[in-house]
Design a protein around this nucleic acid. Sequence first.
DNA 1: ATTTAATTCCCCACATTCCCCCACAAAAAA
DNA 2: TTTTTTGTGGGGGAATGTGGGGAATTAAAT
Lengths: 152, 152
Amino acid sequence: MATFIGNIEAKADVKGRIFIPASYRKQLPEGERERLVMRMDPNNACLILYPEGVWNRKVADFKEKLDEWNSDDQMLLMQFVSDAEWLDIDSQGRVLISKRYLQQIGVSLDVLFVGMLDRIALWDKAAYEHSRLSSNDFAKRLAEKMMKKSVD
Amino acid sequence: MATFIGNIEAKADVKGRIFIPASYRKQLPEGERERLVMRMDPNNACLILYPEGVWNRKVADFKEKLDEWNSDDQMLLMQFVSDAEWLDIDSQGRVLISKRYLQQIGVSLDVLFVGMLDRIALWDKAAYEHSRLSSNDFAKRLAEKMMKKSVD
DNA sequence: ATTTAATTCCCCACATTCCCCCACAAAAAA
DNA sequence: TTTTTTGTGGGGGAATGTGGGGAATTAAAT
């Protein structure tokens, strides 16, 4: 399975098109290079891009854990799915992201792709810099999580 | 598993390519000599090079300990992973390191590979000399660390 | 209903960067 | 010395990234 890492700058053009970095595109499984699933991140001002396979597995996981006849469960499912949409990759390797989503993450042309192992986050560049933890905080909190094991 | 020790001088060429010392390359497991993972060290002005296997184990550890549905956890994961990238080793045994990373560690052509057991640190030569502790400090602090052992 | 505007989509064109390949210097081994 | 391995350098073609024109479709306004 692909492992997306790193961060790559890109520019959205005036039409809202954004080039998927080739290094990421190449990691997509054969046959999943035509489109992605995009979803608003409810917690952060970013969009999450899922390869088809990863998205499908996530959906399967939902079906398994949520009860089809429980209305609360169905509400959760609906809300999760409603903030997502398919993104076709055009012949140049770009995706077109509709204005309202770009506005939601506050994009001003400069964007940042950030690898998150099985998926990719898409940030406004400035917003990402702003959301990053200072390296001290980062090291401390990561160390806590990882239970005092070294993490370098 | 490989045990990288020692330090080896090398030169970055104008294109930002750096030769991985053969003595290190030979220690890479069979089948892991095509590429490495490089990561910015957030605390020191150096880059860390991981053999694939070592990196994969680290990633597995993250996945196990961080909750996919917890946004704090995901932010930590993203921040860790975003400062890393794959480095392909070319047919001459070199890796190409992008300008921005070289700048971050202040490389001026002369670099130093420093073995760190399961991984390798890459320093600007001058910066490394400058960051080293004096041998007095070193001995003292090492002694402190090694005495209050071993609890966890 | 008709016009106008905005968005989406499908082309084509071009600049720049990257990466593959070859050649060779320098050092080590035979 | 000759041969092999290790380390350095550069040219050029392909791939990547950027931009724009203008249909087709949808939405808004008159």
